[in-house]
Write a protein that binds this DNA or RNA. Structure first.
Lengths: 242, 242
DNA sequence: TCAACTATGTCACTTTCTGGCATATTTGAT
DNA sequence: ATCAAATATGCCAGAAAGTGACATAGTTGA
């Protein structure tokens, strides 16, 4: 076992079994007690808040406020986490507003510098409108999984998509659209997009897309502009309370 | 600089500057090129997908699907992230449903085993009701920051709170409540709690709490039971579509 | 007062790391 | 075809870091 792995393991054991004593750690890691203390010093150097109580009944643990190990998210997982945070923020989720923004910052910082430019403004592309009407509410269905998955990828990658859309009159048409923004009018989700077919912004209901294919073409997202054109000022925070 | 730190730095450089060549890395890390290759081998051993192109114009990078470093969240940040994820899930946020649950799992796993029991069920304590009535919508205000902050802590720690509440008739009363569940009836947030004063479950509007103080007493959350008592079946997913 | 803890110092020994050099291999450009 | 720019690996000797054993000091609760 390399030393790095041992340090990892040590941190995990401390986290999982607070109050453990050095002798026990030594046995479990298969090294001398002296080395355990050396490793502990390393962890502390690296910023882990290792606490220790001396004397009988003592032991070691990571400080409670810390507790957490490193979370290793893939880019996509981190992205969707950011989107979720954005949704919560927009919904004025009252929990931990300060922590939300700190967590957001840390996750954004984990991305390569080149991508941060794209990721930061993501939350400005999520809008909250007033709740859907009863009619919409009763007709909103679960979006097609594959279609919405592709649409999501296109949304974050800022790529143009070619998609089949079934409008309110059940007429199917194939369109090329730029997915600029998401609008939630709960429980319905809408896409605010620029429609190449019509040459103008359009609103699409998320559950009405069927066959979504990504094109290589990228676009520059202009969520405000598109939202303004489609909704006037009737969306997002400023519109609330009614 | 310890080797561990150098490995960290190396990973970050690879992430930030894809296409970098070994000679440049050696210069920047202040070690020989031979050591750079050794470090790269270590990273690969540890699971980092380091890719390399040989030959002229070649270079190294981390595989795109990876891209991300470790995110070091504090417990509170992780908690609020989980809550946000839960909210998004409950709202049927159509983006990356699969990734959301994977991310959720990873974040939960980062917590000490002892706490996972508490954290896993958190999302079952967040309920979605139908949107608020026009009357509520027009009267819902920004919750008091300090009060809701304390309420949040009590919610996740499962602690009883003593709070001042101002009811719809503007009458103030002091109560001891157990915050069992959160209910969003957008844009209003409610607390489903057991009210010690009345000895029965009650619904409280989040923006009407004023002075919230934590007590040391913990309770066992029974979100389903409390929600059932207060709302019947008219809440959460089953109630939708209307 | 004792036993159970954390914590640090020293020293000899072992392991790992490191740089330099050689060499193989792949790849794009000329 | 040849060359230059890359990654990649092997080997070696010297340097650095890690390791265990032992000693010792300090703290704490019973």
């Amino acid at each position: 076992m390399h030393r790095i792995d041992r340090l990892d393991l040590l941190a995990r054991i401390l986290r999982d079994r607070p109050g453990i004593v050095a002798a026990e750690l030594a046995r479990e890691l298969g090294v001398s007690q002296r080395s355990v203390f050396r490793d502990l010093a390393h962890l502390r150097e690296r910023g882990y808040p290792v606490e220790a109580d001396r004397g009988r009944g003592g032991g070691m643990r990571l400080h409670a406020s810390w507790g957490l190990g490193k979370v290793l998210l893939s880019s996509e997982e981190a992205l969707c986490t950011l989107l979720s945070l954005a949704v919560s923020e927009k919904l004025r989720f009252p929990m931990f507003a300060a922590e939300v923004s700190r967590a957001r910052k840390k996750i954004v910082d984990a991305f390569p510098r080149a991508e941060r430019r794209q990721i930061g403004p993501l939350r400005e592309r999520i809008l909250v409108g007033r709740p859907a009407s009863a009619v919409v509410r009763s007709s909103f269905a679960e979006p097609n999984a594959v279609a919405s998955r592709n649409m999501q990828v296109a949304f974050v990658r800022e790529q143009v998509v070619r998609a089949d859309y079934i409008n309110e009159k059940a007429v199917r048409s194939t369109r090329r659209v730029e997915p600029h923004a998401l609008l939630i009018m709960w429980p319905a989700w809408y896409l605010l997009a620029f429609d190449h077919l019509r040459g103008e912004p359009r609103t699409f209901r998320f559950d009405r897309f069927e066959r979504v294919e990504l094109e290589e073409v990228v676009f520059r997202p202009r969520p405000r502009e598109i939202a303004q054109a489609l909704l006037g000022d009737s969306c997002d925070a400023p519109a609330y309370p009614v």
